[in-house]
């Protein structure tokens, strides 16, 4: 039987880290938030900009996925119209738990300046939202900060707590 040649107490320490299940799970979840590219309007351009060279979203472990089944964060970037509302719900239902939603921009938060017949007055009428991000359009830095806030929120959560029934039916 091979003997351990490494003296763990001296060279670099033990390859063991003590933590709680909550912490390790939340660490994993909060630092690999894969976002569904839910670009709807102008905010989508800022969302792309924050993913591109200057703002570089990959540093946060956030990469954009095209499939809802691979994503755990939905960034609703832009105006949600009544014609589209059905599809956002469908895609939200297709995402696996745990899932979070950032509502990016005034239009997604409240309908914003588009107080008209065709605009859903806030995506929270259709899907539950975790973070509302103001601005028209919010700058990429704002979106980055929103993701950091969401990460803090995830770290505070208990990892295996049962999902509270959210407000919508």
């Amino acid at each position: 039987m091979a003997q351990h040649q490494v003296n763990y107490t001296q060279s670099g320490g033990l390859p063991v880290a003590l933590t709680t299940v909550d912490k390790i799970l939340n660490w994993g979840r909060s630092n690999s938030l894969w976002a569904l590219t839910y670009g709807l309007a102008c905010c989508a351009i800022e969302m792309m900009a924050s993913g591109a060279s200057r703002y570089d979203f990959d540093r946060f472990g956030t990469i954009f996925r095209a499939s809802p089944r691979q994503a755990d964060l939905m960034i609703v970037a832009g105006t949600l119209t009544k014609k589209h509302a059905e599809f956002i719900r469908r895609l939200y239902d297709q995402m696996t738990e745990p899932k979070w939603v950032i509502s990016m921009g005034s239009c997604a938060n409240t309908g914003g300046m588009f107080n008209t017949y065709a605009t859903v007055q806030g995506v929270d009428r259709v899907i539950p939202v975790d973070l509302y991000l103001p601005g028209c359009a919010p700058r990429p830095e704002t979106l980055q900060y929103a993701v950091m806030l969401l990460q803090q929120k995830i770290r505070r959560e208990s990892a295996n707590k049962s999902q509270k029934p959210k407000r919508l039916v």
């Binding site: 119209t81 014609k83 589209h84 588009f114 008209t116 017949y117 065709a118 605009t119």
Partner: peptide, 11 residues
């Protein structure tokens, strides 16, 4: 099309 119709002309 029409998934981003926000009623600008009406506005």
């Amino acid at each position: 099309i029409g998934y981003l119709h926000r009623g600008m002309e009406k506005m």
